[in-house]
Write a protein that binds this DNA or RNA. Structure first.
Lengths: 175, 175
DNA sequence: TTCATTATTGATTCATCAATCAGTAATTTT
DNA sequence: AAAATTACTGATTGATGAATCAATAATGAA
């Protein structure tokens, strides 16, 4: 039956946090479940009580990282005047980069993993973000919202890279 | 003394090609030197006659991938009128993506590898490209060449991602 | 307190892989 | 054709890691 007790639920969260840190730092394939366990202060086998495979853990970690970005944008959309939408989104993303670097690095890792399950997760995450940004730009009455969305996303991706390889010169000016 | 015979030089190239394919496909850490060797039709130990470590092989592969892009741009710059520069660069990059997908995927992999040697290689590769594009845009008399270079690179990076996760909707229109 | 459920781990397994070594074939030089 | 150099491989090693199992501790209910 395996009921989900509060304690177990919080363990799951701990493990995801640990996985994000370790995977981002070492790379998914090089990182070991033992390192994730250590980071979460539990034993290696116990990880498998919550995630049946290393890949399931990666998927959970990715889900959190996509939720994070969407959450950041959606908390902005309520508060801000239409004409400030893009600037506000940019600020929101800057904060995600500052406070959740590892989640972004993890996404970058996952971009190049060819496994179908991972690929699906990345596609759907990317689509959620794009759709949200596009519809926000449309609602804000921006001209050429598609092109503007593309450029917004493109700058975001360049930003990720600048962060990952530690090259400030690469950062888009205002980001 | 280990003189470099023509045969050895061509073996080195074969191994790099094989490494690019295998690393891009499986990921650097998951890929094995035996798989690289198989792809190059040689035995696994023989790889080590040319590259002393797996990482040295990755560095060589990365160098080729950066050279490829610079080569593509520089062969364009000679042939094209200043006002067509950006469009021509875009076309040139499109061709690289078409014909050397694996090299791009490999670069994406390397973006998230934290090792100092790899990081240095990525920084210097990225810098070479950016400097070349920027100076080309400047020579072409484009207004705001920095901003234009940034957007050009940003769209390129988004393009890479669209390729990697197989999402055509993400592709910048004209690319 | 006893029983049941939930939380957790030590020890192990089986597989895999980077790197080395010690040697054999092929080719070139003399 | 012998010697020397270059090309190449089989076998091995030592380490490591995902996943499983069998068990023990802790917690809560009856």
């Amino acid at each position: 039956m395996d009921k989900i007790t509060p304690k177990a639920a919080s363990r799951k969260e701990d493990i995801i946090s640990a996985a994000i840190t370790v995977f981002a730092d070492l790379g998914y394939y090089r990182a070991t479940t033992a390192q994730v366990a250590a980071q979460a202060n539990i034993s290696q086998p116990y990880v498998y009580r919550f995630y049946n495979t290393k890949e399931a853990l990666l998927l959970a970690a990715l889900e959190r990282s996509w939720d994070r970005i969407l959450q950041a944008f959606s908390s902005v959309r309520e508060k801000v005047k239409p004409e400030d939408m893009e600037t506000a989104f940019t600020e929101a993303y800057k904060n995600v980069l500052r406070n959740f670097q590892s989640e972004i690095l993890l996404q970058m890792q996952a971009q190049t993993i060819q496994d179908p399950e991972i690929r699906k997760a990345m596609q759907s995450g990317m689509k959620r973000i794009r759709d949200y940004v596009l519809s926000s730009f449309q609602q804000s009455g921006y001209p050429e919202p598609e092109e503007r969305t593309t450029i917004f996303l493109a700058k975001g991706m360049l930003c990720n890279i600048a962060l990952a390889i530690d090259m400030d010169e690469l950062m888009p000016n205002h980001l």
